[in-house]
Design a binder for these strands. Structure first.
Lengths: 366, 366
DNA sequence: GGAATTAATGAGAGCGCTCCCATAACTTTT
DNA sequence: AAAAGTTATGGGAGCGCTCTCATTAATTCC
């Protein structure tokens, strides 16, 4: 019951290969009687068209790739990527796409995987998590005709198609919240200087501070790498300089920072207020109620697939960009009542939470 | 530079299609001179063979599927699956395989995905996370010629190919550890009665208790669903009956349980000892040092791919099974010094930690 | 030195499908 | 009633590759 081909069904139904093909693909030009007969036989035999053959002629596989560079063992410890992957996978289900997942651990992996990705007849398009390690892939992608979309703003200007979250605005929201609550010595734990997301969040922090006429004290700023431990260590560096509030560029780091605060015998938020970034499930987990900036991670994955699919179907040659909004989620780690309420100038754009802004156009022909 | 085919390269090199094919596939019967010439042209033009065409004739895609049923939103909150996925992805890189990931959320997804999986010419073989929801898929798989491997022992006896961790022995190790330390009122938090893993761990617990001549007190046993919250709630149910030690069937539930203990103003391990299961990174995370049973999750994924690859290459028609060992990891949550050391009969098999046991044979031709 | 062996190459069929075009059987139009 | 259109179906080419088999050239054998 397994190695049937179109021709076998045709013979069984007493029609031609073409007619069976029409039935399988839902073409209208088939007689009612014939269609029924053919469908019954397909049903009975459990026939399924062969993907490879179909792909060969249609030049489509309905498979899209998702490439995630995985620097350390700890990569999958951060729930961000699983959640993103989930969003992408769901969108693929909805759009009848198959998802090929590429986890790039080291340079060998990249060398091994890159040709497989570029090779025609395998992938219809590709989603690449932005990272310094992926520059080689992007170069190859740019000189090929493969539709691609970068997940997160790339450093390379040539990589024109990307989707990102408005990190500057998100960081502004976080910082303004601390400013409004009247905190005086506001610190920050940076994600990782190499990441564009961290750069943008740092920028947003600075803008918000400057907008309130405040200086950023360098001793209150430390760098981590988005991991729990790095948040813990960064907080330990900052702690001696008496911050009264800290903006951590990820929830995981915020959790690490909280641990450092508690170990120092201090209390969150009484002694030090904390804002995170991501709004991962664990931020609202029953033991912690972290004030944070919500990123629509799953939604991000879904939008990415939709954009890519659109590029595949319509062969768009213009630059495709999409920037997703963020939302401040107020919980328990910043002090529920205001200490010294202060009015801070708010730009009206801050009202629209989770707004998504699409820019499409310009820059033809890569 | 993109739509080159074998024939174009052949023309450029002044040889036949066949010769280029031989060069590409590393056949020996090609003249040294010719080979060099062809290779240079391939290099220069950036030619890559078309996968679909190759698959069509070779009946191989070098793509394997990984199917994970995802019951709740919280599925990817549990780091178990990301870690497993990672192991599978790495093994795929090593074996030059492409990984197609299928996340099955609901029944619609299953209906949508199943035919795509079964369809020939798409996947060479498939890894399916065992789950009650997947029984439909397994049925289809059994009546097809697609090589498959279940991840975890399936309830269905017909599903003969699987890889699993020795859950009974793991649970025994955990329980014996508590018995040796002299705990008297030992409780358990069950994962989820539907899961075979939980059933086996429960069985192991019972066997260890019986082996030490101890009764299992039903009031000290509660059921969760492998989530943090469920561990917390289960512990709250058990707490009134004064347990002095609890075996939680997952690290995540152990963490929830620990939270419940602390909220009740009690201390781990002074008042209540705790053993987890999994040895996820967070079990040894800097704030908690959980005594637990180590499952080789990543290794599990790697072995699974290797087994499947073997089945694909050698078309094995016999039942393939592999059971991986577990290891007790002693940390801080069971009391470092013995309270009332007790000697418990240990079977000698317990010495070999992380031993892997392979059983292959029997049951031909499904 | 002619037959047999080996190495290097080319020609052709075919993997299972889609898509274009031809044909045949009806309708509709003028 | 003949021309034109419409609908249902079949035939054939071709997608880009691999693989078997035939062919030729170079080598070895007795």
């Amino acid at each position: 019951m397994d190695n049937l081909k179109l021709e076998d069904i045709a013979k069984l139904a007493g029609v031609s290969r073409s007619t069976v093909s029409r039935v399988v693909n839902g073409s209208t030009n088939v007689g009612v009687e014939t269609r029924k007969r053919v469908e019954k036989i397909i049903q009975r035999t459990g026939y399924h068209p062969n993907m490879a053959a179909r792909s060969l002629v249609s030049q489509r596989t309905n498979i899209i790739g998702l490439v995630i560079p995985k620097t350390t063992q700890a990569f999958f410890t951060d729930p961000y990527f699983p959640q993103l992957t989930q969003g992408v996978a769901f969108a693929c289900n909805d759009l009848h796409l198959t998802l090929a997942l590429f986890l790039v651990g080291n340079e060998e992996d990249e060398a091994e995987i890159t040709p497989r990705i570029i090779r025609r007849g395998m992938l219809d398009g590709i989603l690449v998590q932005t990272s310094a390690k992926m520059e080689g892939l992007f170069k190859r992608l740019l000189s090929s005709s493969m539709p691609y979309l970068a997940l997160g703003r790339p450093n390379d200007e040539d990589v024109v198609n990307y989707i990102d979250v408005d990190n500057i605005r998100g960081a502004k929201q976080a910082t303004r919240h601390l400013l409004v609550l009247g905190y005086k010595r506001i610190g920050m734990i940076i994600g990782s200087i190499e990441s564009a997301a961290a750069t943008d969040r740092t920028e947003g922090f600075k803008q918000a501070m400057a907008g309130a006429g405040r200086k950023v004290d360098p001793v209150l700023v430390a760098e981590g790498d988005f991991s729990e431990v790095s948040g813990y260590e960064a907080m330990k560096k900052i702690l001696p300089f008496n911050p009264d509030a800290v903006f951590a560029q990820s929830d995981i780091m915020a959790l690490g920072a909280m641990r450092a605060v508690q170990e120092a015998g201090l209390n969150v938020p009484r002694d030090i207020a904390l804002v995170g970034y991501d709004d991962l499930p664990l931020a609202s987990g029953s033991s912690t109620k972290l004030t944070t900036i919500r990123q629509p991670i799953t939604h991000f994955g879904i939008k990415a697939v939709e954009m890519l699919k659109d590029m595949i179907d319509n062969g768009t040659k213009v630059a495709n960009r999409m920037i997703l909004g963020t939302e401040l989620v107020v919980r328990d780690t910043c002090g529920s009542s205001l200490k010294n309420p202060v009015s801070v100038q708010k730009s009206d754009e801050d009202e629209s939470a989770l707004r998504s802004l699409e820019i499409t156009g310009g820059m033809t022909d890569q």
